[in-house]
Simulated scan of single mutants.
Amino acid sequence: MHQRLSAGQLATGSILIALAVMGLKTAAWMMTGSVALLSDALESLVNIGGAVMAWFAVRYAQRPPDADHPFGHHKAEYFSAVAEGILIVIAALVIVHEAVNALGRPAAAEWGTAGMVVNAVAMGVNLAWARVLLQAGRRLHSPALSAGGHHLMSDVWTSAGVLFGLVLALTTGWAVLDPLLALLVAVNILREGWQVISGSVNGLMDTAAPEGERTEIEEIIHSSAAGALQVHGLKTRRAGRALFVECHMVVESSMTVQEAHDICDRVEAALRKGFPDAQPVIHVEPEHKLEPAGIKPR
């Protein structure tokens, strides 16, 4: 069912899920007083902020091109992902502060199991929704949804580590494990924040399409540009869902404009069939522009 949901609907769902998980984790912390569970709940607070930003970014990115933004608004999702990464880093610093304070006054490891069960339920909800977002992010080429999915997946591993450590603390009576676990949580969150920020900045820097997509684009051109002598100078870039493809197509000097235009139309149609959000630009050149290397159509 989730495969039929739009990016906007998934972004709305992320807000609702983040609120529910935050409520569960806060309840778990209040039932136990564990600093590690508090750190887990603080990370969920970041999830809410990230989900809200993604909701706005996804809707803004779907706006059609206008006079001020002729190439569309697709990159808005990257700004959302960068902002979420910054929030992740801030949350990690707050957790470090709480954990360091707790190291000087570790409480007795007398937590009940009820709070940990509640936290485990929250972890299960996060795991299910993270998988939904990761699949949707790949399907829709949405940086905002992918960033949210990776963040939630990190949250799942954090929760699993916290629960394992608290069980160990209960078993051994070593209360110092609680703030130490919180510090480990902070390190994991910092790593996740860095990955989200760096990945989104790459998108803002017009990184080329993934290697697999470039290979598929070359094959599409190879099989659809019959009548041309060569295609070279292929450039690609991803901007959220949009895929920009530029290339130079060499034709015989005697070919009419209409014949060359027909080949361009055929190549563009084939690219859009393989990549519905492709925006190709083809520059036609005469045969003396042949390059030593390029794509030779069939």
Rank of each mutant, 00 (worst) to 15 (best):
A269F: 02
V250W: 04
L183G: 13
H73M: 00
P280A: 11
R191A: 15
S142N: 02
S154R: 03
L183R: 09
A225I: 10
P143N: 02
L10K: 07
A99K: 08
M1Q: 12
S198P: 01
A83D: 08
W29G: 00
V176P: 09
N126V: 02
N47M: 05
Q258V: 00
R191T: 14
L163C: 04
R266A: 12
A208G: 11
A114P: 06
L190T: 10
E219H: 12
G115H: 06
A147N: 03
Q9S: 11
Y60V: 08
A28S: 08
E110P: 02
T256M: 05
P276V: 01
S14K: 09
V125W: 06
P280D: 11
L163K: 03
H283Y: 12
P210T: 06
A51Y: 11
E110H: 15
V94K: 06
V118N: 02
G161P: 04
L24E: 04
A225C: 12
F275L: 06
D178T: 09
A107Y: 09
T113N: 07
E291S: 15
G50E: 05
I88F: 10
Y60P: 02
T207V: 15
L170N: 10
G85A: 03
L204H: 10
V231N: 11
G49T: 08
P280F: 04
I17N: 13
D68K: 09
R241L: 01
S14D: 15
I282D: 03
R105D: 14
I90H: 10
A226R: 13
A144S: 00
S198M: 07
L163F: 06
H141I: 01
S198I: 12
A7M: 00
Y60A: 09
W174F: 15
V231E: 05
W174K: 06
G49F: 13
I189M: 08
R63P: 00
A27W: 04
G173A: 12
P106Y: 13
H141F: 05
A175D: 12
R105Q: 15
K235Y: 13
G124T: 01
N119L: 05
F244K: 03
A36K: 10
D155H: 00
V187K: 07
R237P: 09
A226I: 12
S34L: 07
L177C: 10
A208H: 14
V185K: 08
V250Y: 05
A225G: 11
I189V: 15
Q279D: 13
E98R: 14
Y60F: 11
L177H: 11
A182P: 11
L133M: 05
S198A: 14
R4C: 07
E252P: 02
L243S: 07
Q9D: 07
A61P: 01
G193L: 02
G161I: 08
I90N: 07
T215A: 15
L127V: 00
E192N: 07
A242I: 04
L271G: 01
H74I: 01
G50W: 03
R214H: 11
A91N: 09
K75L: 09
A83P: 02
L184K: 08
H283G: 10
R237T: 10
L16Q: 15
A228K: 00
P106F: 09
N101V: 08
L42M: 08
A114C: 08
T215L: 13
V167T: 09
S146Y: 01
M53K: 00
S200C: 02
I189C: 05
S154A: 14
T113A: 14
M205S: 11
F56D: 07
A122T: 00
L204K: 03
A108E: 15
W129L: 03
E110N: 14
I17W: 10
